Amino acid sequence: MNTPQRLFALVVVLIGCAVVSLMAGVHWMSPADIGHAFWMPSATNVDDLVIRTTRLSRTVLAIVVGASLAVAGGILQTLTLNPLASPGILGINAGALLAVVLIATIDSVAAHLSPYIGAFVGAAVAAAVVWRLASYRQTAAPLHLILAGAALAALFGAISQALLVIDQHGLDTVLFWLAGSVAGRSLDTVWPLIAVAIIGLLVGIPLLRDLNLLATGNTVAAAAGLRLRRLQMLAMGVIVLLAGASVAMAGNVVFIGLVVPHIARRLLGADHRIWLPGAALIGMILTLMADVAARLLMAPSEVPIGVMTALIGAPVFIALVRRQGRGHA
């Protein structure tokens, strides 16, 4: 199977997963029910309401979050030249969580700022601080980015825990971001974040060719005429838009940004113009299936989607670490 055929197969699988996501739940719907809900909806039909509100919103969110995290992780791995990098390593998740904790524990802030917007702002500020720390000596070296992100994530995490210990009433609000979930959100509420994620995906398209050069190493890329500083800033901006919006919409959904780029590269090759769009498709598929599994594993209760993606991603992460260790040896 050649590369175009593999991409087409991924699109077909994605459509199938989206249909399953609309069908799955404590009460299973049929494809006929889904067609009726979209083409002949009735205001008094409970199944139509469930599909058009609850299941449609979480399906759309899973698709957007999966694509955003996968692309953000892929760009970050190329930017840092580190195959174990992911959006969380820059402190983006920790920054978003700290913003949500502040909103939950400080009434004057909560009165003026939505937790969703606050999470995005916190993620963006965290990434900006990491970039500033890493580029203090005129260049953002890959190792500097990783170290600055890890340090800032630890600091933000400690502050968040301290605030929650002082005011435990905010813990219920924060649990959603800690565990990760695409349930319970209305599209009317999060559509600005969806728009931000789509903008981030579109802005990333012109960078694909330059990312191919960057993947060869900073020295080779600079010798080829690539403006490293400009590309690094643009790539970081895309990562902030994608990862920040994803964390704000779904909380701490782990391992998608780490694992999916590796799967995409093995399946589609090393050309960013091919494997990054493929990573977006794979990220959508995995996030949709993780959400379906989260609904069914302990029905009628639900497992947080962050737990399901961790169950999938943790073994792959361990395998990657062991492979990197053997490579260095």
Results as ranks from 00 to 15, higher is better:
N2T: 14
Q5R: 14
F8M: 14
A18L: 12
S21P: 11
I34R: 02
H36P: 00
A43Q: 12
A43P: 02
D47S: 13
V50K: 03
I51K: 07
T53S: 13
T54F: 14
T59Y: 07
V60S: 06
L61Q: 13
L61M: 15
L61P: 04
L69Q: 05
L69T: 01
V71K: 01
A72F: 04
N82K: 06
N82S: 07
N82T: 03
A85S: 11
P87R: 01
L90G: 09
I92H: 06
I92F: 04
G95C: 12
T105Q: 05
A110E: 10
H112D: 02
P115G: 10
Y116N: 13
Y116H: 14
G118L: 11
F120G: 06
A124G: 08
A124P: 05
W131E: 00
W131P: 05
L133Y: 08
A134H: 07
S135D: 14
P142D: 11
P142C: 05
L145Q: 02
A148H: 05
A154M: 15
I159K: 07
L164Q: 14
V165P: 00
Q168G: 13
H169L: 09
W177A: 09
V182P: 07
L193D: 00
I199G: 14
P206F: 11
L207P: 01
L207F: 05
L208S: 10
T219V: 10
V220S: 09
A221S: 07
G225E: 09
G225A: 10
G237K: 05
G237H: 06
L241T: 01
A250Q: 01
I256M: 03
G257K: 01
L258F: 05
V259W: 00
A270T: 14
I274E: 09
I274A: 12
W275P: 02
P277K: 10
A279K: 04
A279W: 09
A280F: 07
A290E: 12
M298V: 15
M298D: 12
G313W: 04
P315N: 11
P315A: 11
V316L: 13
A319E: 00
L320S: 12
V321W: 00
V321G: 08
H328M: 15
